[in-house]
Design a protein around this nucleic acid. Sequence first.
DNA 1: CTGAAAGCGCTAACAA
DNA 2: TTGTTAGCGCTTTCAG
Lengths: 340, 340
Amino acid sequence: MQSKVTLADVAAAAGVSKMTASRAMRGARDVSPKTVERIQRIAAELGYMANHVAASLANNRSDLIGVVVPSLSNIVFSEVMSGIEDAITGSGLQPFFGVTGYDPDREYRIVRQMLSWQPAGMIVTGLDQDDLTTQMLRVAPLPIVQIMDTDGDPVDMCVGFSQREAGAGMARMLLEAGRKRFAYVGCGLDRDTRGAKRRAGYLETLAAHGITDVPERIVGGLSSVAAGKAMTAEILTAHPKLDAIYYSNDDVAMGGLFHCMEAGIPIPDRLTIAGFNGVDISASLPAPMATTRTARREIGAAAAAAILNRQGRGTKSPLPALQTLEVHHVLDARISVTTS
Amino acid sequence: MQSKVTLADVAAAAGVSKMTASRAMRGARDVSPKTVERIQRIAAELGYMANHVAASLANNRSDLIGVVVPSLSNIVFSEVMSGIEDAITGSGLQPFFGVTGYDPDREYRIVRQMLSWQPAGMIVTGLDQDDLTTQMLRVAPLPIVQIMDTDGDPVDMCVGFSQREAGAGMARMLLEAGRKRFAYVGCGLDRDTRGAKRRAGYLETLAAHGITDVPERIVGGLSSVAAGKAMTAEILTAHPKLDAIYYSNDDVAMGGLFHCMEAGIPIPDRLTIAGFNGVDISASLPAPMATTRTARREIGAAAAAAILNRQGRGTKSPLPALQTLEVHHVLDARISVTTS
DNA sequence: CTGAAAGCGCTAACAA
DNA sequence: TTGTTAGCGCTTTCAG
């Protein structure tokens, strides 16, 4: 059971004090290079393994960074995590994930649990946590970054884009392309507040252009290709003359696309399928789909960078001003422009 | 800065000892219900938040469970994680993820880092860690479960299925369906050892049936639909008469399917596209794809359950016998059976 | 450059 | 049912 080798053992074996061994095992700026080399060699021989729990207790701070995402079945959050990992590589921080399943209670428990590990920072998806969670984050003495959304008041820092504006932008693009008969199809908007904001932006923009009759199909539960396929079949049966459908995201939209391919509906000529996210697969589909490409990696990386910038200080910025970083998102046309 | 509220503060405010407060805040079996209620109320009023770091140091054990996966861009691992979360819900354990990107060095660092948090258990993907990592896991005094693969020697426990046999099974199914001209297309087999095992099982089985001329296209890098699409275009140009292509996984296979749809190749009549995993989307595609449905959630859940079963004992099972749980996988035909 | 003392916040093991 | 005594393994002072 080598794991019982402690720093004291290493120190004893090397004939130095625990303190010297401690310094030698980390950055070690105040120890002679020779000693460092010797201590590290002995540590390796003994099979010494650091105990981060003890170190964190002594420091009153761990080098964990808590990351809270709603789901992993959506590739998007994997890419956010990827961006985070890239940004903290070499910093000594370690990310530490929790998945809420879009459940506010679960989010509360996860955030609480994470905070109890005294992390160096937290990255939380969205601005719409429930009151207890928000309060907990607000009083926590560590940098917090909320990501993916800027439509609301951040607890501390914020990196993302306006979801409402993303939906509005898609509506404008479809209008400019000459589309006339719009619909909306989505999954799980009761819990996915960002999806709900996109829908709201879409519907508002259409309404501002006098289009108020927008059929919709919405189901609860997780996004899925299968659900998108089924709802598209339904809505096209009820409204065969639709020429644009906006979906809650690319997964659902792909289901719509697949339905149309099977049903022989020419895409994109007769109907535009519009998703959201711009996931990789959307560029390889056998028929074109419009989407909004979001910068997930960049958002993750920027959020992690924001925490690193605060590193070394256990308190929030003294400025009452909250920092929000707006990250671009790009409309990906792939629409057949009709001449009306 | 409420986070400075410590158990001692709660105890003082309640007029009890730290120990009583400690007991009251957790399970509390030996404390009078009234005291428990009072202490918990006071703790809430004071905004007390547990410090898991201190608790873990005192226990010499945290209630984290480390989960190491190679990638998140593959939905499969998200589903494994889901299974893990489901299984440990209510147990008080918390999963804690690391992503290796199929890089053995990174895997080593992640495992080392995780072990330094004194987790209650570890779940690691695959049986092919490098020697240092394996050694580290072997001596760690905690339950370890390796998942997804059973072709090899586990360090401790193992939950999965034979990847080689999965590849062989697909070859047999294609042979039985009357397919004659086989190919293989894959991504990243230099690092994805499980994918490489499936390929080996496939090729061996074909060879056993006298089929040794199996064209292949393999690229490095991550699996992607785009890569599958490009390689399929290439291989079909070079070998237009192929009637079955096995891919390293469903993502790559979908690329193949999309290429064929664009190229007007009738699927599945003239060509069977065979993937691996049985991801949800594979059932909604506009043309049928064969695949092997794997039980990811079940594997995750069984792995977590194996760790829970060991809970309470800091040492490995005294039995030298290593426990391997074989989880089923199911072939999903969707092949047009030809009459030869 | 190195060491000694003190303590981070909590809990096991006893006592009472 | 509750309290006391010792640490868990490390790092932060502050001396040498």
